[in-house]
Simulated assay, not measured.
Amino acid sequence: MTTATTRPSPTTDADADPFRYGWRLVPRPTPDNPYHLEQIPLTLDDVLHPEVGDFIVHSDRHETDRMYLTAVLRARLEPSRRAIVLSDVRIAWDLPDLRAHGPDVMVIPGVRKRRNWSTFEVAVERARPALIIEIVSLDARENDVVIKVEQYARAGVAQYVIVDDTGRGGVRRLRLLDYRLEGTAYRLQEPDAEGRVHLAIADVWLGIRRDHVVCYDAAGREIGDYVTVVRQAAKAEARAKQAATRAKEAAARARQEAVARAEAEERARQEAAARAEAEERARQEAVARAEAEERARQEAAARMEAEERARQEAQAREVESRARAEAEARLRELEQELRRLRGDA
């Protein structure tokens, strides 16, 4: 889940802008680009229950307050490892009928080691936020001041603080709503005389100065110069975004290289299959040639045998003919001799 302070398609009528809440990139492969992503506008329900990678549109002041609160709470809590502070990270609850949220700021005790979460899973980490702070965006105000009050109570979040904006016409008019969990429901607490609320887990007081939030320590001293803290937080967030961008680019390159390798392997497989088919055809042709040559040899041998038999039969006929001729000649001689003898008698 990512926040943004610009919109892809600004119009003069905010209600007519389908991207006024933000957008989601959905894979829509095309014949020319299998990695094509289509930009889909978010609904109020999407803002309430975001998915990883959603771009949710917020004002510049919203982002400034979020970065300031995150930086102050991290400085107060993380060096002592009392808790981790997450901002703009999706949280998946351990209740099957409660969908994930994307709080502006949440403080989670009981987690010793920070990891690069895109979604913090309560069931896996065995820890839940003790404090959530939401900074109201006017377009989605009901999500924060009505729906999440009931849902965060169900999730067991001990303190839920809302930086509410009741202003109109682009002018911020902020107030703080401090909900504390009593049993299974929230009870709204009154702020102190100066309009501040106590963030119990950090022992920090949160107040309003003109159009932005300010944190104070137990002695009432302002924690950090607002502008300095925000600039430091902005630089840190910019570095994190650059690192995330580099990681995405590296992942994209890795995917492209994997696709290229897969295509090369497929081509090699096809070429190997073609070679194997050619070799098989050559083997079959060689076998066919050998069988044809064998048949030709056998036919030649059969012809030779037939010719030899014919020759022998011709010789036998010739011998028989000579023998008959000789027998007939001898018979004639005997006949002549017989006639001669009869004449003499």
Results as ranks from 00 to 15, higher is better:
E134W: 03
A100I: 09
I133C: 02
V145K: 02
E125D: 04
D104A: 09
P96F: 12
R115W: 01
N116L: 14
E150R: 13
D165L: 09
G167W: 00
L138C: 03
R154Q: 14
G110T: 12
K113D: 11
N143K: 14
I132T: 10
P96E: 13
Q159I: 09
A130Q: 11
E121M: 12
M106Q: 14
P109Q: 10
E142D: 14
E150D: 13
I133Y: 00
R141T: 07
V136F: 07
I133K: 04
A158V: 13
A123T: 04
V163T: 14
L138F: 05
V122C: 04
T119L: 07
Q159M: 09
E134Y: 00
T119G: 02
R114P: 04
V111F: 04
G167K: 04
V111C: 04
I108K: 01
Q151T: 13
S118V: 09
D164V: 09
I108E: 02
R112E: 15
S118D: 11
D139C: 07
T119V: 15
V163P: 10
H101W: 11
M106N: 06
D144M: 08
E121Q: 14
L138M: 13
D97M: 04
V145G: 03
D144F: 08
R99K: 15
Y160S: 03
E142R: 15
F120V: 03
V163M: 14
R141G: 01
R126S: 08
K148E: 05
E121H: 14
I162Q: 07
R112S: 14
V161P: 01
G167Q: 03
S118A: 12
G156H: 11
L98S: 05
D94M: 08
L138Q: 15
V136P: 01
K148Q: 08
A158D: 15
G102E: 01
I132C: 08
A153W: 05
V149E: 02
I147M: 02
